[in-house]
C-alpha cells in the first residue's frame, strides 16, 4: 500500500460517518467504498459500509462486507451483528441465529459488554422466532394435509354408500321413501364423523391447550420476560444478564439484598438457561410474540452505528 493511503482512507471514513449520521446512506456507502479502495485491510471500513448497506436494504452486499470484515478480524461483534440482520432479512434464520449467537458471545466476552447485550439478545430472539415460524408453517401444512386427506376419504366413502342406496332404489330393492330415509341417516352419520375428526385435530393442537403463561421461575424479575441468558447473583437469584448489567452500571448492588455486586461476580445459570430454552422451544409461537414488543428498531440499534 503506498504511504498516505491509510490516512486517506481514514479521512474518507470520517466523511462517510458524517453522511451516515445525517441519514445519507447512499453517499456514506460510496465514501466507505472509496476508503476501502485506499485501504482494504481495515475491518472497520467493511462493517461501516455494511451498516450503511443495511439501511439501504442491500442484504447480499451487507453479507459480503461482513464476511470480508470477519476474514480480517475474527472476533468481530459488529460484523456478526450486521450479518445476522441481513441473513434474517433474506429469510435464512438458521444462519442468522448462529451469527447472532456469535455476536452475543463476543459481546459478553468483551470488557464493555453492557448496553449492546440487550440489543443483541433481542436479535437472537428474533432469529429464534423466525426459525420457529418456518418450522411451524411446515407443521401446519403437514397437519392440514393429513386432515384434508382424512376428510376427503370420509367424503368418498359416504358418496359411495349414497350411490349404493341410489342403485338399490333404481333396482327396486327398497322403496323410495325408505331409500330417502336411509340416505338422510347416512348423511347425518358422515357429518358427525367429519365434525369429530375436525374437533380431534383442533384439540390435539398444542396451541389450543394449556395456559399461555411463562412460569415465574423462568421470568427475569426486572423485565418480567422469559430469560435467555440467566446469571445468578450471590444470594442465588437469577436475572437476565443484559438487564442486570444495565442495573449494575447505575447501582452496583444486588437488586434484592442491596449487598454490593459487580459484573465480575455474576455466574451463568446453565441449568436454568436450558429450562428456558426448552420452554421456548415448546411454546415459541406465543412466547416470542410477547418478546417482540413494539420496540423501535432504529433507536434500538442507534448506539451500534458507525464509529
Amino acid at each position: 500500500m503506498p504511504p498516505g493511503n491509510e490516512y486517506a482512507a481514514e479521512q474518507l471514513k470520517t466523511q462517510g460517518n458524517a453522511h451516515f449520521k445525517n441519514g445519507e446512506y447512499e453517499s456514506a456507502e460510496s465514501y466507505y467504498g472509496q476508503a476501502i479502495q485506499k485501504n482494504s485491510k481495515n475491518p472497520l471500513l467493511f462493517t461501516n459500509r455494511a451498516n450503511a448497506r443495511l439501511k439501504l436494504e442491500k442484504w447480499e452486499d451487507v453479507i459480503n462486507d461482513c464476511l470480508r470484515s470477519i476474514e480480517l478480524l475474527e472476533e468481530n461483534m459488529k460484523a456478526y451483528f450486521y450479518l445476522a440482520q441481513a441473513q434474517i432479512a433474506i429469510n435464512h434464520p438458521n444462519e442468522a441465529l448462529s451469527s447472532a449467537l456469535r455476536a452475543y458471545e463476543l459481546c459478553t466476552q468483551s470488557a464493555q459488554q453492557t448496553s449492546n447485550a440487550a440489543t443483541i439478545s433481542a436479535l437472537v430472539l428474533k432469529c429464534k422466532k423466525a426459525k420457529w415460524d418456518i418450522r411451524e408453517r411446515e407443521r401446519i401444512r403437514r397437519r392440514a394435509d393429513l386432515l384434508s386427506d382424512l376428510d376427503a376419504s370420509l367424503e368418498v366413502s359416504y358418496k359411495k354408500e349414497a350411490d349404493d342406496i341410489e342403485a338399490r332404489i333404481e333396482a327396486g330393492d327398497i322403496g323410495n321413501v325408505e331409500g330417502i330415509e336411509e340416505k338422510k341417516e347416512l348423511r347425518a352419520e358422515w357429518e358427525k364423523k367429519r365434525d369429530d375428526l375436525r374437533t380431534a385435530f383442533a384439540l390435539s393442537d398444542p396451541q389450543m391447550l394449556g395456559k399461555r403463561e411463562v412460569p415465574d421461575y423462568l421470568v427475569d424479575g426486572i423485565t418480567f420476560e422469559i430469560m435467555h441468558d440467566p446469571v445468578v447473583t450471590k444470594n442465588g437469584r437469577s436475572y437476565e444478564r443484559a438487564t442486570l448489567i444495565e442495573h449494575l452500571k447505575r447501582n452496583p448492588t444486588d437488586p434484592l439484598t442491596r449487598e454490593s455486586l459487580t459484573v465480575a461476580e455474576l455466574r451463568p445459570n446453565i441449568a436454568l438457561k436450558e429450562a428456558c430454552t426448552e420452554f421456548m422451544e415448546e411454546n415459541s409461537g406465543w412466547v416470542y410474540d410477547c418478546e417482540d414488543g413494539e420496540t423501535d428498531h432504529d433507536t434500538r440499534w442507534a448506539h451500534l452505528s458507525s464509529s
Partner: peptide, 11 residues
C-alpha cells in the same frame, strides 16, 4: 428501552 414491555406486563 424495556419500559413499555415491562409496564404492559405489570398492567
Amino acid at each position: 428501552m424495556f419500559a413499555s414491555k415491562r409496564l404492559s406486563k405489570e398492567l
